[in-house]
Simulated scan of single mutants.
Amino acid sequence: MHKENILEVKNLVKWFPVKKGLFSKTNSYLKAVDDVSFSIPRGEVLGLVGESGCGKSTTGRAILRLIEATQGEVLLEGQDLYRMGKTALKEKRKDMQIVFQDPYASLNPRLTIRSIIGEAIKLHQVVSEKERDAFMEELLYEVGLGKHFLNHFPHQFSGGQRQRIGIARALAVRPKLIVMDEAVSALDVSVQAQVLNLFQDLQQKYGLTYLFITHNLSVVKHISNRIAVMYLGQIVEISEKEEFFRNPQHPYSRALISAIPSSSPEIKRERILLKGDLTSPVDPPQGCRFYSRCPEAQAICKEVQPPHKEVGNQHLVACHLR
């Protein structure tokens, strides 16, 4: 049965001006996100993976309009966020939230947990003032913390506890979409597993939809339904999770999978080492952006940008050789 898409991203572009000279004149652009399109069905998790600097986090923030996209469309439940005025966007913000990477920087150190979580509840009038404390206590319970923590300050918590508070803050306005921006990468491995399990429990309980941004394929394998691979501002492959790990099509995807540590010493995986220089996002080639590092590159790859081709059931890859 086909599920409706809660999020549709169409031809999203975000270029940052590069200024030089005495008068800070813009002479080029850093193409952080360059013509990115994907969708997420309601209640599912899309894992967006790639190396640091590939544009994953910029994509997530542009979707939420935390930064303004250069062009493109972002449809949340069919409504284009980039066609909304300030008032309409403010009302829509309660449907979309983000959990940031750094649990130490994402919480205001001067505010108590009561103020941090209660601010959004008050702003969006989620519950009445009389019900607010009980609602916040229930939120803390949901993320594995006690109600007595409401009067504490962020410096009194560990990294894992702070991230749980960040999750409670995101849940406070009863969102439909949550962007997880490297939400477990700053945590210890043992704590990562606990927080990932918490994400899954909350998703099932509230029917949440996640865009899960990470560089860790082991993490994305655990939590995602589908996986999109990003390289230098563009999606190069997108597929169902099982199909992706069983039959990766793009040379970059294969290299990423080969780098996953094996859980058993008996399983030996041949590591694909990428050679060549990383292409600059300020001056990308007119052809495939992976050309300079691709072990299978041919002449056409340098000259012509590969279109997305369907190589299976909803399995798309941008590669001339597939």
Rank of each mutant, 00 (worst) to 15 (best):
V189H: 00
L278M: 13
L7R: 06
K309A: 05
D188W: 01
G207H: 11
R293Y: 09
E242K: 15
A255W: 07
T279E: 15
Q71H: 07
A297V: 03
A255Q: 07
S24Y: 05
C301A: 08
D80S: 00
Q314C: 05
L232H: 13
N225K: 10
Y29W: 15
N108L: 02
V195G: 09
L123I: 15
L30P: 04
S28N: 13
L198K: 08
S280M: 11
P103W: 10
L140E: 03
Q200V: 10
Q125I: 00
E242F: 02
D133L: 14
E266S: 15
T26Y: 04
N5C: 06
D201L: 13
S24R: 15
D188N: 06
F100I: 05
Y82T: 00
L140V: 07
D102R: 06
M180P: 01
Q101D: 11
G53V: 12
R110I: 10
L217F: 11
P281C: 13
G55K: 09
N313E: 15
K92I: 01
V126I: 15
T112V: 00
M136R: 04
D201C: 07
C319N: 01
A193W: 03
N247P: 08
E51W: 02
S24E: 14
A69K: 14
L208Q: 10
C54T: 05
P175Q: 08
T87W: 07
D102S: 12
R65E: 00
I257V: 13
P175Y: 12
E296Q: 14
R93P: 03
V184F: 12
V282D: 08
P17Y: 09
D277G: 09
K14I: 09
R169P: 09
D201T: 14
K122E: 15
E51R: 03
I67W: 06
G47N: 05
Q97R: 08
Q125E: 14
L187G: 03
S28W: 08
E242P: 05
L202A: 11
A168C: 06
G146I: 00
A255K: 10
E137T: 02
V282P: 01
Y210H: 01
E137G: 11
K309M: 02
T58Y: 09
Q249S: 14
F244H: 07
P261I: 13
K20F: 05
R114W: 12
K268Y: 02
H320Q: 00
